[in-house]
Amino acid sequence: MASYEELANSVIRGNAPKVIELTKSLVESGCDPLEIINQGLIGGMNVVGARFKVGEMFVPEVLMAARAMSSGVEIVKPLIAEGDMPSAGKVVLGTVKGDLHDIGKNLVAMMLESAGFEVLNLGVDISPEKFAEAVKEHQPDVVAMSALLTTTMLAMKDTIDVLAEEGLRDKVKVIVGGAPISEEFAQEIGADGYAPDAASATELCKNLIGQAS
């Protein structure tokens, strides 16, 4: 019989066919689908996240691992009642108005999804009003904003202001990141947190959601 460790290792290697084979084997052996996800699939991705953070793995390998994990989740998902599907939380994510850069934002999306978050990636050049609409519609735990330019980072404060005007600010945590952003800037504009990199963004979301609950 396949083991959770083998499954996690296949996720780490990004070997999707093997992940499918092992996941099916574990399901057929009667293993708990939630355990397959938590111990095998997400367990593997947690290792990937840690290795990415210290520079032992790079984006292409993380991507392959994330895809391998997803192929396993697709097999197990129908066996779990909708409400029981593990979710670390919901995050609305976007690059702010006027800014078309997306490498950092997409990395954050990928790392969050891999860590079990539900991610709504709004894309680039997202106006404060669009962020507010997304918050109303999807009721996320966290709004994550990215900016690469000093001329666009100011839109982060505008977004926070619009969330406040719409009465939404107290309902979500707001985090910011991007090359010109610092912890001090995050505090200055009234964000709840700042993440210097994609792996830290995942930890930050976990911490903020943990505090809120």
Partner: peptide
């Protein structure tokens, strides 16, 4: 260096401020 204001107003991307 670069400025983040023009005559005291915030310099916003893709606007006439640029």
């Amino acid at each position: 260096p670069s400025l983040d204001t023009v005559y005291g107003s915030p310099l916003l991307a893709n606007t006439p401020y640029e």
